[in-house]
Amino acid sequence: MTIDELAEAITEALDRYGWPEAVRGVKQFCIDFENADDCVRREMLNAEPRSTGSRAFDAMLAGLAEHLAFHHGLRVPRWALDPRRSVDDEWWFATDTPTLRPLCFVDTPAAFAGRGVFLPRSALANV
């Protein structure tokens, strides 16, 4: 699955089930990424993903690409560095449990936090 295909799956999950199911798709993408070789990993991140219709998820995809590329010694795709792929007006938490938000502040990787997206590291599998 490419990150563009993930964007399509997120859009569908948001329409049908809501954002918690869309976050689970991100976790599966991370698992698939971990199991791929570097050539496939580059292909997974290379093409700019379509918009999910959610500024938060578009920012999450950019953070995901930067995070995965950094941790696997790959070049961060140019599209992921676009400042429009961030949540400018407010922070977005990938949890609907307010008591987990402090954990998100501490546990969120920098590539996500810098875009205003906060999620527990566990949402990214073992990355």
Rank of each mutant, 00 (worst) to 15 (best):
D15N: 12
F105S: 10
W92F: 15
G63F: 08
H71M: 07
A59E: 02
F57S: 06
G25R: 13
G25S: 14
A110H: 06
R115C: 02
C104A: 15
A80Q: 12
V106A: 07
A110F: 05
H67I: 05
T97M: 05
V127C: 05
A69L: 05
P83N: 08
A47N: 14
H67C: 15
P49T: 10
R78V: 13
P109E: 11
P83K: 10
E34T: 01
R75S: 14
V117D: 02
R75N: 11
T95A: 12
W19F: 15
V106M: 10
D4I: 00
F29I: 05
D82A: 02
R50I: 00
A111F: 09
D89H: 13
I31T: 07
P83Q: 14
H72W: 08
I31H: 07
E48V: 02
A111V: 03
D38L: 07
W92G: 10
L81V: 06
T108W: 01
G25P: 05
F112S: 14
V26E: 01
V87P: 04
E66M: 08
R41G: 00
L64H: 04
D4C: 01
A123F: 08
G116A: 07
R75D: 15
A111K: 08
A59D: 05
D96Y: 12
V117M: 07
D58A: 00
R78L: 12
D37I: 01
L6W: 04
L45F: 10
H71V: 03
R85K: 06
A111S: 14
I31K: 04
A59H: 02
I3E: 06
D15Q: 13
V117W: 01
E48C: 09
V40W: 01
L14F: 11
F70A: 15
F105N: 09
L74V: 03
P109G: 03
L14C: 08
E90L: 03
A65S: 11
G25A: 04
T95S: 15
S86E: 12
G114I: 12
W19Y: 15
A56W: 02
A125F: 12
D4N: 13
N46A: 08
D107T: 11
A9F: 01
D15R: 13
F70D: 13
P77S: 04
F29Y: 09
D4R: 11
F57V: 03
E34V: 10
G114R: 15
S86K: 14
N126W: 04
